[in-house]
């Protein structure tokens, strides 16, 4: 009951925090674009960030917000493995970028959910195997959605992520 009452306050708090992050990220990116090439600090990376989101709407919101922040971009995600694949422009360290994304997700989920629930998840990159291989116990390569796509309905729950990538992962 109480959490219903505080919901608007929590959402406004989150939006203010996000607006601050958005403006800071804009300034950082702007400054880097205008810097002479030799001193550009661009150091991109694509990082698999373990996610605490569960529902499709939570994944949609967190990936949109990450993308909306200049300098970070969600390329794809896997609900089955609870991973967001985030491209970061200033990823001096892999863990630094992953922490930033997880902090944003923490704040979003605390604002959004009635009960935040268990938000703990590892920082390190998860070992991801194709569903078919994992079932057969014979996957020597870490693999993600190529498994879901080629194995057809092996990961039928992940319709959002698998249906949208027909042959791409195998290309």
């Amino acid at each position: 009951m109480n959490s219903w009452l505080t919901w608007p306050v929590r959402m406004i708090g989150f939006l203010l925090w996000y607006a601050k992050e958005f403006l800071l990220a804009n300034l950082q990116v702007t400054a880097d674009i205008l810097r002479p090439s030799a001193r550009m600090r661009t150091d991109p990376a694509i990082v698999a960030v373990p996610a605490a989101s569960r529902t499709a709407s939570e994944y949609t919101l967190i990936s949109s917000l990450v993308t909306l922040t200049p300098g970070t971009l969600t390329i794809t995600y896997s609900r089955d493995h609870a991973v967001l694949y985030v491209h970061g422009m200033f990823a001096a360290s892999r863990d630094g970028l992953a922490e930033e994304i997880q902090e944003m997700e923490d704040r979003l989920l605390r604002a959004m959910r009635r009960e935040p629930g268990d938000l703990s998840r590892p920082l390190a990159r998860p070992t991801v195997r194709p569903a078919a291989d994992a079932a057969a116990g014979a996957g020597d390569r870490a693999d993600d959605r190529t498994g879901g796509a080629s194995a057809g309905t092996a990961e039928s729950e992940g319709t959002e992520n698998d249906a949208g990538r027909p042959a791409g992962g195998d290309a």
């Binding site: 661009t42 150091d43 991109p44 990376a45 694509i46 990082v47 698999a48 971009l73 390329i75 794809t76 694949y85 491209h87 892999r94 990159r125 991801v128 194709p130 390569r141 870490a142 693999d143 993600d144 959605r145 190529t146 498994g147 080629s150 990538r165 791409g168 992962g169 195998d170 290309a171």
Partner: peptide, 27 residues
């Protein structure tokens, strides 16, 4: 745009490191 670019093998710039999405490819 980014996702379709990745699915169509548009490579990230060489300075992109690590690329943990690339490791998920089976081929």
């Amino acid at each position: 745009i980014a996702r379709s670019g990745y699915l169509h093998d548009s490579p990230p710039a060489a300075i992109t490191s690590p690329d943990e999405l690339r490791d998920t490819r089976r081929d």
